[in-house]
Computed example of a mutant assay.
Amino acid sequence: MTGLCILFADIAESTTLFEKHGDEAARNAISSVLDVLLKEAQKHQGELVKTIGDEIMCVFPKANHALLAAVDMQNAVSGNFVLGNHPINIRVGFHFGDVIEEDNDVFGDAVNVAARMTGFAKKEQVITNSITFEQCILPPFLNHRSLGRTKVKGKLLPVEIIEIIWQQDTSQVTRVTSALDIKVPVTKSQLEIELNGRTQIMTDQSPTKTIGRGDDCDIQIAMLLASRYHGEIQFSGGLFKYTDESTNGSWVQQGGDEPIRIHRESMVLHNQGTIAFGEMDFSRPDQLLSYKIIK
C-alpha cells in the first residue's frame, strides 16, 4: 500500500458540448482542455494515471501538491475556453489515502473517495474533505469553507466536505446551496425503494445507496444509456436526496408532476415518485426506480 493523493478533474456539462456543437468539435475542445489540465498537474509533481472520456485521473505524492494543481487547473481553464458561445468549465476533487498500484493504475478506497469528492463538485469548484485538507498548507491567497458533513460509501462516519475558494476576488464567489448545506430538523422517515421487483428500505441510519450499471453499485440498473456510476440516494440534513452523477442525466417524476431532468445535481425526494436513468422513458416500469416516503 502506498500513500498518494488522487485527483479527478472533469469537464462540467460536457454532454451539452456534444449536443450543441457535434462530436468532432466537442472532442477537440475537450482534448485541448485535458492537455492543459495535465500540464498543470505535472507542474506540481502530478502523474497521469488515465484519461476517462472527459476526465483525467492523476496522483500526487502529497495532498498539498494536488491542492495547488487543482487551483492552477481552475485558473488555467476558467474564462479561457469557449466552444461557440458555451464557456467550458471544470470541476475538481481530490483525496489522500492508501492505494494499491498495479499495471500502471491505482485502486482502493482512497480512489473511490476521491471520485466522490469530484462528484460533489459543481462547475468551477474544487472539493476535498477535512481529512485531506488537514494535510495541506493553504497559501495566503486562497480560502476555504465547509459544506457540512455527508455520508460517503465505505466510511462509517459522515465526512466533512471542504471547498477550496480558488478565486482571488472572493466577492465574486456565489454562495453555493447544495444538498450538503441544507440544515432542517431530522425526521424519522423511511424511504422505500423498488426496482424490478426488488424492494429496499432506507432509514436515517442507512449508508448511501449507489446506483448504476457497475457491479460495485448497491442498486444495479441495466439501462443502455445509464452510467456505470449513475447516482446515489442518501439521507442528509433530515431529508432523503437523489444526486445524479451521470453522463446523460436522470429524470425524476414526483407524484403527478412533470418529470424534471437533473444532471450532476441533487433533488430532495418527497412523498412518492419514479426515477428514469439516461433518458426520459417512463414506459418501461421494469427500468424505473420507484420510491415512497414512509412516515
Rank of each mutant, 00 (worst) to 15 (best):
R175M: 12
R228I: 09
N104E: 11
D54Y: 02
G237K: 03
A66K: 01
L142Q: 13
G46T: 04
N89D: 12
E13I: 01
N143V: 02
D54V: 00
I233L: 06
M223Q: 05
H86P: 00
I201Q: 09
K43T: 05
L34D: 02
F94A: 09
I127T: 08
V176F: 13
S189T: 05
E124V: 06
I219Q: 03
I6G: 02
P87I: 07
V92I: 13
L68T: 01
K241R: 11
D103P: 09
Q125N: 08
A63R: 00
E101K: 14
Q234L: 15
S14W: 08
C58Y: 00
N75E: 04
L239A: 12
P207K: 14
Q253E: 13
M223F: 03
M117R: 09
M223K: 04
R213W: 10
F96N: 06
I6V: 14
C58F: 00
S146E: 03
V33W: 02
K20S: 13
L34W: 07
D216W: 01
D105C: 11
L67F: 03
N28H: 13
D281F: 07
I88M: 03
E194I: 15
G278L: 08
I233G: 03
T2A: 06
L7V: 04
A70R: 00
F107M: 01
L7K: 03
C5S: 10
I165Q: 13
V99T: 10
H44Y: 04
G237V: 00
D98P: 02
K123I: 10
V173D: 07
G53K: 03
N28A: 11
E265C: 09
Q272I: 08
I193W: 13
F107L: 06
G197A: 15
E24A: 12
T199G: 13
L195A: 14
E101I: 15
H86G: 02
V92D: 07
G22F: 12
A115K: 05
L38M: 08
E124Q: 11
T247A: 09
E19P: 10
T187N: 14
T2V: 07
T203S: 15
S266V: 04
I6Q: 00
L34V: 09
A179P: 08
G79C: 05
H270S: 11
R27P: 06
A276V: 12
K209D: 11
E102W: 14
L289M: 15
K122W: 07
D244T: 05
S146N: 03
P158V: 04
I233A: 03
L4F: 00
H230S: 13
Q234G: 10
E101V: 15
D98K: 12
E245R: 14
L225N: 12
D244E: 12
E134N: 14
T208H: 05
H263F: 10
Q135G: 04
E13P: 03
G108E: 11
A121K: 08
I161H: 05
G148A: 10
T170C: 08
L68N: 01
Q205S: 15
I6K: 01
I262S: 07
I88V: 06
S78F: 09
S227F: 06
Q167C: 01
A29H: 01
V36N: 00
L147N: 08
S206Y: 14
R175G: 06
K188S: 15
F133N: 09
K155P: 07
C58R: 00
W251V: 09
I52G: 00
L239D: 10
A110L: 08
V59L: 02
T187F: 12
G93H: 08
I165R: 07
